[in-house]
Design a protein around this nucleic acid. Structure first.
Lengths: 127, 127
DNA sequence: AGATACCAGTATCCGATGGATACCTTTGCG
DNA sequence: CGCAAAGGTATCCATCGGATACTGGTATCT
């Protein structure tokens, strides 16, 4: 009776939960949310804040997030153009899981890196 | 002084937190953890439980997780071969963030799907 | 004896995807 | 005139994920 079993059917591909997991597991999506939690931002601000993202990928990410109802895109008919992105309530609610993940990452980065170094030393260390 | 700012430097590529984020944001990693939280499993059990994973990718995932200290791999020199995987303490600690993410996904799947449908109806609905 | 199955992967091939770079648009300004 | 600004596209390439087939050693089935 799976009292509090989570992700019960997440193992089934095609399960909506899987789709959503894939989305919010996306690297850039997470980072974009982190930026936008601080308030609305324009495209170039996002691009500059999130290190290493290319415009194409950022556009794709933003479009998908908009499609999924995580943020809104507002275009100002000016020159030069201005476009602002802002999280919706749904997008803001991502704060909780993302924060959990970020916290874990920061707390355990050292352990992971240490394990990685140990492994490297044991296998490819002499190459 | 970023009092409680999370992911402060996660925007910097090359930041270890980013590396870890990428890892645990990985679809298969998450699902493998979910299975192994229930106890040690052998390769074929994982492959069968996690829907849609191919052996190659599963192997890659497991190898990386082992390298990162998330699980242990135990080989039994038998015929036919037997290999068992088990989460380490570090791996088990992933339960917390993963659970947060899974919970979000299950709670908001409907909202996301609805937004997606709305979007599809508005743009590609007539194609 | 020979074929077969078992398990945990590899090997190989292919298409999708991510990423780097260059380019486009409009219009105000020097 | 022509360059700069902003928000993307267009193009190309590398990498990766995924599908399928195959391996190896033994024990058992026929």
């Amino acid at each position: 009776m799976k009292e509090h079993l989570f992700a019960g059917d997440a193992f089934d591909p095609g399960c909506p939960t899987r789709l959503v997991l894939d989305r919010i597991g996306d690297k850039w999506t997470v980072l974009v949310v982190l930026v936008l939690l601080d308030g609305r931002r324009r495209f170039s601000e996002l691009r500059d804040t999130v290190g290493g993202v290319t415009p194409k990928v950022l556009t794709q990410t933003l479009r998908t997030m908009e499609r999924d109802g995580l943020l809104t895109r507002e275009v100002f008919a000016e020159v030069p153009p201005r476009v602002e992105y802002e999280l919706t309530g749904l997008g803001r609610s991502l704060q909780v899981p993302i924060r959990a993940v970020s916290d874990w990452a920061e707390q355990h980065v050292h352990a992971v890196m240490a394990a990685r170094d140990r492994h490297d030393a044991a296998s490819g260390g002499d190459a």
